[in-house]
């Protein structure tokens, strides 16, 4: 895709941000990182689907672990691998979106985009990925002066066309799910679109890659992730650790505010969302999918 085409596509993503009348940003601290952090994704999605909450961008961290799609734990060996990883302090959590395993925990940051499902097929799957990636790219440019782009990086974790890539290395993995009917097509049902990004800020790359490969070696007999394909933002920055993380959060919030034309900065999850989150907790646990 030419640079001109990509610029046009990003302009369309920006226009969708402006089309939505109301936005909120939920910016959660790492102190809140528990397994409930994963269950909150469904609780927020359902609230957005039923008009109880506006379109939302959530900046958050999960506890240390691997987050996998359902297909990764569909087999007995996948379940065994999940159990084994729990024993070495890399518990496995299940997400509703697709793709392959992603490392979470200290040094990673997640950005989740929630949109109410349109009644008509107004947005494509690609539009949603660009909406998710755009604030991350703006942040990388503003905070670190780095150019980034969408692209595949074979050998990286959860590889796909909409990785955010810097200097040939993957720094962000993305995935999405459409609730309420087939993706990108019309549906009369209430539903939501959740697109999710995991950003490697200053995570221990070797440990993360080692954990990913340990899981897949037991689940599928393969070690599919190559360390040289992935990078953290810290590897491009003079800022390190928590100082870098604070700068990234600030940059993300500013990028989102710019794109949305002033999202509600001080939003938190509603009492209803917080109350409902525990009811989705079992969806995040591998044993829920054991046949």
């Amino acid at each position: 895709m030419s640079k001109m085409e990509e610029a046009k596509n990003l302009a369309r993503a920006a226009s969708i941000y402006r089309e939505m009348k109301e936005w909120r940003i939920i910016d959660e601290s790492f102190e809140n990182a528990t397994p409930l952090s994963y269950a909150m994704e469904e609780a927020i999605g359902e609230a957005v689907a039923h008009g109880k909450a506006p379109a939302t961008l959530r900046i958050w961290q999960g506890p240390q672990g691997l987050v996998v799609a359902k297909k990764d734990i569909r087999t007995r060996s996948g379940m065994d691998a999940a159990l084994m990883m729990k024993g070495v302090d890399w518990p496995v959590y299940v997400r509703q979106s697709g793709g392959t395993a992603v490392p979470h925990g200290p040094g990673t940051l997640n950005l989740s985009l929630f949109l109410p499902r349109p009644k008509e097929s107004a947005w494509t799957i690609d539009d949603i990925y660009r909406m998710l990636g755009y604030p991350l790219m703006k942040m990388a440019k503003a905070i670190l002066g780095l150019d980034s782009y969408f692209g595949e990086v074979p050998g990286s974790f959860c590889d796909g066309r909409y990785n955010v890539v810097i200097q040939g290395k993957k720094v962000v993995g993305t995935s999405q799910v459409w609730k309420g009917g087939p993706a990108g097509l019309s549906s009369k049902r209430p539903g939501y679109v959740l697109a999710h990004a995991t950003l490697l800020v200053h995570t221990d790359r070797e440990q993360a890659v080692s954990a990913l490969n340990a899981f897949y070696e037991m689940a599928e007999g393969d070690r599919p992730v190559y360390i040289d394909t992935v990078a953290t933002l810290a590897s491009f920055s003079s800022l390190q650790g928590e100082e870098l993380e604070r700068a990234v959060r600030k940059g993300l919030v500013e990028a989102i505010q710019d794109l949305t034309g002033g999202a509600d900065l001080f939003a938190t999850a509603s009492a209803d969302e917080i109350d409902k989150a525990p009811t989705y907790l079992d969806h995040c646990q591998p044993q829920h999918y054991q046949k």
């Binding site: 297909k71 990925y129 459409w178 993706a183 990108g184």
Partner: peptide
């Protein structure tokens, strides 16, 4: 149920 494509997951009704 659901279907996962290379791009996304969709719910089946």
């Amino acid at each position: 149920g659901s279907v996962e494509s290379v791009k996304t997951v969709s719910e089946l009704y």
